[in-house]
Design a protein around this nucleic acid. Structure first.
Lengths: 101, 101
DNA sequence: TAGAAATATCGAGAAAACCCGATATATATT
DNA sequence: AATATATATCGGGTTTTCTCGATATTTCTA
């Protein structure tokens, strides 16, 4: 768990936005269950991409950055990759900052 | 309080180090009270600079970055500028991450 | 098996961060 | 007033990040 890597991942408006959207998928991606294989392991890249307005490659890369930092988990199912927040890691980060920063 | 600016400030090994040193000045800067005007508003730039091994200009800039992010407070007294952690802001950040990230 | 759809990776130009040396500014001392 | 000390700012070379378009890979479907 590299602190610098985590903070780098968070040091970007779009990535913070994505992380925030993933808190409430049904709110921010109304049809996220209907349109890419009704599931419960997160939101697929395409939905995030369309909402963000960034290109597909950029969003794919940003999600990879968040994942490498441990802030989200990725699950590939068929042709889709679903991303969801890693709540445990995020909570741990809050703890770490409040106590050991 | 710009989140991105805060995370950018934290996304650097040397700055994290400095923030950590400032948690316990007497431990990390044994003579910080003796050699630059015995005071209680923090540690002067020179001490931080010597311990970090970075150049004076770099450390001055880094401290400014931390200050702009609200993570430290600066107090100029005479020819010295003393820096100390802004514990309130840091605690608030921990809260924010644990709840609203 | 050929084509379509979703995602990942590659290559690159622009912008920002890193970190330095040199110089400027502010304050203290003599 | 001249000099010394502490810090801040400036200019710039180097590295990293940002973000894109193009292409590759994987999986699904006809």
């Amino acid at each position: 768990m590299d602190q610098v890597e985590i903070f780098k991942a968070l040091a970007n408006k779009a990535r913070l936005q994505i992380l925030n959207w993933l808190k409430e998928p049904e709110t921010h991606f109304p049809d996220y269950k209907a349109s890419c294989g009704d599931n419960s392991v997160g939101v697929c890249v395409g939905h995030i991409q369309r909402k963000s307005g960034l290109t597909q490659s950029t969003v794919s890369e940003y999600l990879a950055v968040l994942q490498r930092a441990g802030l989200v988990n990725a699950t590939r199912i068929g042709q889709w990759t679903y991303y969801q927040r890693n709540e445990i890691a995020i909570k741990a980060l809050g703890q770490l900052i409040a106590t050991s920063l």
